[in-house]
Design a protein around this nucleic acid. Structure first.
Length: 303
DNA sequence: ATCACAATAT
DNA sequence: AATATTGTGA
């Protein structure tokens, strides 16, 4: 229905960070590179509110020393004297930016972005755009995403034996609890990020799909009205079934199990066409049916 | 161009 | 240890 759609969006909007949270993240008037080039610091805030600025002086960030001395001597990438006009762009291009520090707040943004984008759109560029943090690059996000996926993977395999769904499995097990783990744990992992890794993942097949052998059933969502069901996952790249498929977060998984038809696809919405650029995500609800867990994926994670 | 991923660098 | 960069193959 149209009504549901607006609610859906409103809810999504409600979950956006408050203005207080946003304030430190708001856009600056000049690019990071230029700010660095001219040694412009954030004047209006004494503390480390600016996400990117908190970064600047990591011990490893020798970079600032390079810029501090004076503009004449500083050159990062083999660019000599800086002409007044063109030198700036050149410098902005070649300047080393400080390392990004992934604060819990920033990570939360990341997670929110991924959650709201939905699996198929959660790629570095899109994530970066949705996060809209000034100075954040696609590479920053890609690097973080890569690590985050490893974290999710690790978390899943560790959690698999001990049905302890809630408490972090990696704490009890061979767990590691590094600082990174704590960062990743600082933002709740949306349920639909986690899938039982047990090789029982099934890519979408036209018509619906279910996993058989495992005790996990996977139900595909229906999006829109037509005969089309939206793929919950990206397909493995044109390879035949029963080989491998590409899990959005867990990478290539081998698929041995047979696909079995179960359940009814879920309709995302009545009219089905107000979607467009809207962020779409999926949520899973675990239901017990005959000792079988059914994971249902809905469009939009807010329900 | 962008992505994912592993390996490697800082 | 945390993040960046690079290389490779989609």
């Amino acid at each position: 229905m149209r009504e549901e759609d607006s609610n859906w969006f409103a809810k999504w909007e409600d979950e956006l960070p408050s203005p207080e949270e946003l304030m430190p993240l708001s856009q600056t008037l000049i690019t990071q590179d230029l700010a660095i080039a001219f040694d412009i610091r954030n004047s209006n805030n004494t503390n480390q509110t600016d996400i990117i600025n908190t970064v600047v002086n990591s011990p490893q960030a020798n970079s600032s020393a390079e810029f501090d001395s004076d503009m004449g001597g500083t050159r990062v990438g083999g660019e000599g004297g800086v002409g007044i006009g063109s030198g700036l762009d050149e410098q902005a291009r070649t300047l080393k930016r400080p390392r990004l520090v992934w604060t819990p707040q920033l990570h939360k943004r990341f997670v929110d972005a991924v959650a709201h984008l939905g699996i198929k759109n959660a790629v570095p560029k899109t994530i970066m755009q949705l996060m809209s943090v000034d100075g954040l690059t696609r590479e920053n996000v890609a690097s973080h995403l890569q690590k985050y996926r490893l974290y999710l993977k690790r978390m899943q395999s560790n959690n698999n034996g001990a049905g302890n769904g809630n408490s972090p499995g990696w704490l009890s097990g061979s767990g590691v609890d590094t600082a990174m783990d704590r960062l990743f744990a600082s933002a709740p992992v949306p349920a639909h990020f986690l899938r039982p890794i047990s090789e029982h993942y099934v890519p979408y097949t036209p018509g619906t799909m279910q996993v058989h052998h495992p005790q996990i059933a996977l139900q595909a969502p229906m999006v829109g009205h037509g005969p089309q069901i939206q793929q919950p996952f990206r397909h493995f790249r044109n390879s035949p079934p029963n080989e491998q498929f590409e899990h959005p977060f867990l990478g290539r998984q081998s698929q041995q199990q047979q696909v079995q038809r179960i359940g009814t696809p879920i309709h995302a919405n009545g009219n089905g066409n107000s979607h467009h650029g809207m962020p779409t995500s999926y949520v899973e609800s675990a239901t017990a049916a005959n000792g079988r867990k059914v994971l249902t994926l809905f469009p939009n994670g807010d329900d």
